[in-house]
Design a protein around this nucleic acid. Structure first.
Lengths: 240, 240
DNA sequence: CTTGACCTTGCCCCTAGGTCAAGGTCCGAC
DNA sequence: GTCGGACCTTGACCTAGGGGCAAGGTCAAG
């Protein structure tokens, strides 16, 4: 006959846990000795090990209770299912490990794979880190607010970027971030931008987001996302 | 700018969880619009995905909070450690799957490997299922109460079982469970048992547990563990 | 103007126990 | 015989990571 502490050591649990199982009706309350101590039998030890095995497998105590009363077939089926869950869980842990690895340096976690590819292309083109951050945040907002629209816009933006002239304009806008607001290149850039859109405005009238300032618009809420030169550029584009 | 529900959908969590992270100081409270609704930026989305990635990896929220503020080196180290834990966890799940498989039919879960081997040997010898259950329960009690003594006793019991005469007696005691208490074989069996011990009592005087009734003694606490014939046998052995 | 879907705060509920408190008990040592 | 330390008893409160509900405010469409 065992005390609660001996039984707990045997099964590798605390006595508190055993009392918890009594409260939940998982393990029947054993008889008491003359001083009121619980006294356990080998059967209790066997039951407790079963309980722990199932609990370690992630089975909720309420379900373990049912399982202990269930017949052999039901138990076999339940164990098969639990084992399946364990396998799923292991596979899931593998995926979580991949995601965890991406947490260091990757941005693929935050956007759809298509957008991630697009951002990779931007890097290839020589777009600045800053600009890519703005783009990323813009796409996050768009994807979140309306995933299907974002997908359409991404296709159109890719079309734009396929045009070498547009790419030049885009890169120059990127570089202009650090210019002085009185830089003489700004009016010229504004002119060429307006000019380009005049020749390609079939869709851009209905969807004004497709100009190179898209990231600036999307990121306006973030402090420090613009610069004096960009503000001036926005004025020049809007003013005329 | 996103509402809490949009942000929640983006990250695959509930709005309640996001508020929970605000309360815990994991995610800063964003600004409110004119009607008091929270309004989120892309940065919040990025932070939330980081939080979820770490939380999915099993990192407690309190530690995630520290990690988000930590510098890059500390973060890298922490991620390495978390990844290690994940690997451990996966290996552990594999072990739990093994144990789960043993739950169907195996008794190896409940006793030490040595005792499990001994129980297997009993089956080979033709010992009944009932008797093996009694033995198992006896060994569980012994192991739990005093593992090192149990190990010694097991060695001695194995020595006894190495003697063909003892094995015959043991099997006959096993079979006697179902005899009638007035069966004429009982007194004869008691005689032969006493006789055997008279010739081999070098140790059994100090350790009376080593007679074939060991399981009966250990299992006395369990109702229905004895039978009329066994009770009679005990009387016969004790009486003279 | 209503309806349904959203948002707000606040409260209690869950699992699987851990921890602390305030005692009663057992056992070996002195 | 009694002392100390390790064990046992019950009970109450605490934790993480939210879920669910109440009671209301807001928004956009029909």
């Amino acid at each position: 006959m065992l005390t609660i502490g001996q039984l707990a050591d045997y099964a590798g649990v605390t006595s508190k846990a055993i009392r918890h199982y009594h409260e939940r009706g998982l393990l029947p309350e054993p008889g008491r000795d003359s001083s009121g101590y619980r006294r356990y039998t080998a059967k209790d030890a066997v039951d407790l090990v079963k309980i722990r095995t199932l609990a370690n497998a992630g089975v909720p105590l309420a379900r373990i209770k049912d399982l202990l009363d269930a017949d052999s077939d039901a138990l076999t089926a339940a164990i098969a299912e639990i084992d399946h869950n364990l396998q799923d869980r292991m596979a899931q842990l593998g995926r979580i490990r991949d995601q965890l690895a991406q947490l260091r340096g990757g941005e693929r976690l935050f956007v759809s794979p298509e957008v991630a590819d697009y951002l990779d292309d931007l890097r290839e083109l020589g777009v600045s880190e800053r600009q890519r951050c703005l783009e990323r945040d813009g796409w996050i907002l768009m994807q979140t607010a309306s995933p299907e629209d974002a997908s359409l816009w991404l296709a159109e933006k890719r079309e734009l970027m396929a045009d070498p002239e547009f790419r030049v304009l885009y890169l120059e806008h990127d570089a202009a971030y650090e210019w002085s607001p009185s830089d003489p290149r700004l009016p010229a850039l504004a002119d060429r931008t307006r000019n380009w859109f005049a020749h390609h405005d079939s869709r851009s009238e209905t969807r004004p987001v497709h100009n190179p300032a898209i990231a600036r618009l999307a990121a306006q809420s973030q402090p420090g996302a613009s610069s004096p030169a960009w503000d001036r550029l926005t004025q020049l584009l809007k003013g005329q």
